[in-house]
Design a protein around this nucleic acid. Structure first.
Length: 418
RNA sequence: CGGGGACUAGUUCAUCGGUAGAACGCCCGCUUUGGGAGCGGGAAGCACAGGGUUCAAUUCCCUGGUCCCCGACCA
């Protein structure tokens, strides 16, 4: 991608309303644009990051047997009335359709997937079944805030798992738990698993929390065995596992996993016939992961005073190619050549091809956008006198040092980076 | 949903009773190029909306809207 064509350009200052780090940096760098409180457009760079995160999640879900589907955003109000959540779900967006029909913008999808399963599941042979989707969810939060950390429209992965028994469900729960840990590790986030209060659905649920001062949740982390507990259920300041001292930390909840209560299966009549010919209720679990919130969390955790520092796995591009002195045709040709060679090797490159823009602006933009590898081509690097003419000047966003390596060496670095 | 703050150029802000100004960005010209360069010229505004006070309101008052922050809430 040539930067001269990229929409939109970076901003020197953050808009007045943006106070949280992730909001400021992502707006300034041109990843997102706020439309109203809690509602954002994902711009070219931002969408690429979301896509990277989605694909990492998708890959792990597929590995544990998940089948990807896409359920509707628009739900029949009727289903929500059946579960009682049409009136009890506080942040539900409700609207009217033709003939005054009650409709709901989906904040979660039990009301869709249970009827879907009830229609299609008959035998123990149909189970277990793991269905997931990556989709836009709607929740009318009383107070949207902190950029992508708490929005009214957000992207979420939700996996629903259906089993013959609670025992089988609990086994799969552990598998998903491991998959989640892998996902967050790949994303460059160290997420702690915290025991949370069960809420409406279950006696036990767990949350995946990323420790950062800007988080809105509070967790207690054991200084001895690294057990973490959500504030909601931490009664004393001692670890329930090892009796160590608990330290209070702020955190962002990026995932939540829990068994689903059987009342859903009862309401929507989700039963199956077991091997012995007996009718039994289906046992289920729900596994959520906030894709867009995770993007915000990455920025909160990984940035410096100059801008974002994207982990390689989720960066919108791998290489930021900065061309200086581009009015010099030989430098320009050299830079274009490097650009094409990188593209030919399948490397994702953002090429700053602007001619009448100073080096300082280009460097500042590169720092702000936060792509992992910066390659600079200029008169200085291009001139044979420097002794480095056959090498690329490479700087990692996360490091201070600049290195000179051959094109082949650079390719190897980039391709092995994640 | 309680409390606080803000709304003026594309953006960030100044003017704080006498119908608007800077910086950045943008356009043109010259100059310049390794960390947000310089000079000159230019375009750019129903001052959130409505009502009130006043000879006169962007400015003061009221109502509403929007956004941000703190809290409550967060299947």
């Amino acid at each position: 991608m040539k930067y001269s064509k990229l929409f939109p350009k970076t901003l020197r200052q953050a808009p007045a309303g943006a106070e949280s780090i992730n909001h400021q940096l992502m707006v300034r760098a041109g990843f997102i644009h706020q439309e109203m409180a809690g509602v954002y457009t994902y711009l070219s760079l931002g969408w690429r990051v979301l896509d990277k995160i989605s694909n990492i999640v998708r890959e792990e879900m597929d590995k544990i047997g998940g089948q990807e589907i896409l359920m509707p955003v628009l739900h029949p109000g009727e289903n929500w009335k059946k579960t009682g959540r049409f009136s009890s779900f506080d942040t539900l967006y409700k609207l009217k359709g033709a003939k005054d029909k009650d409709l709901v913008l989906g904040p979660t999808h039990e009301e869709i997937i249970y009827p879907l399963l009830a229609e299609n599941i008959n035998s123990y042979k149909d189970l277990p079944l793991y269905l997931y989707q990556i989709q836009t969810k709607f929740r009318d939060e009383p107070r949207a805030k902190a950029g992508l950390l708490r929005t009214r429209e957000f992207m979420m992965k939700d996996l629903y798992a259906f089993h013959e028994s609670d025992e089988e469900r609990n086994e799969y729960y552990k598998i998903v738990r491991e998959a989640y840990l892998k996902i967050f590790k790949k994303l460059g986030l160290s997420a702690l698993v915290t025991k949370a209060s069960g809420g409406t659905f279950s006696d036990l649920s767990e949350e995946f929390q990323v420790i950062t001062p800007s988080g809105e949740d509070t967790v207690f982390v054991c200084n001895r065995c690294s057990v973490a507990i959500n504030k909601e259920i931490a009664e004393d300041k001692k670890c329930p596992e090892c009796n160590g001292n608990l330290k209070e930390e702020k955190s962002i909840e990026v995932g939540n996993i829990f068994p689903l209560k059987r009342s859903y299966a009862e309401v929507f009549n989700l039963y199956f016939t077991d091997k012995g010919g007996e009718k039994k209720i289906v046992s289920a679990g729900c596994f959520g992961l906030g894709i867009s919130r995770t993007m915000g969390a990455v920025v909160e955790v990984s940035h410096d005073k100059s801008g974002i520092i994207w982990p390689e796995a989720v960066a919108p591009y791998q290489v930021h190619l900065v061309g200086l002195d581009l009015e010099d045709s030989s430098v320009k040709n050299k830079t274009e050549e490097i650009y094409k060679l990188l593209l030919a090797e399948g490397v994702e490159v953002l090429f700053d091809d602007r001619v009448e823009v100073s080096a300082g602006i280009k460097f500042a933009d590169a720092d702000l956008i936060g792509i992992p590898y910066r390659v600079v081509i200029s008169k200085k690097t291009h001139s044979t006198g420097s002794g480095q003419a056959d090498k690329l000047e490479v700087k990692k966003r996360s490091e201070k040092e600049t290195k000179f390596v051959t094109f082949e060496q650079f390719l190897e670095i980039v391709k092995n980076s994640h």
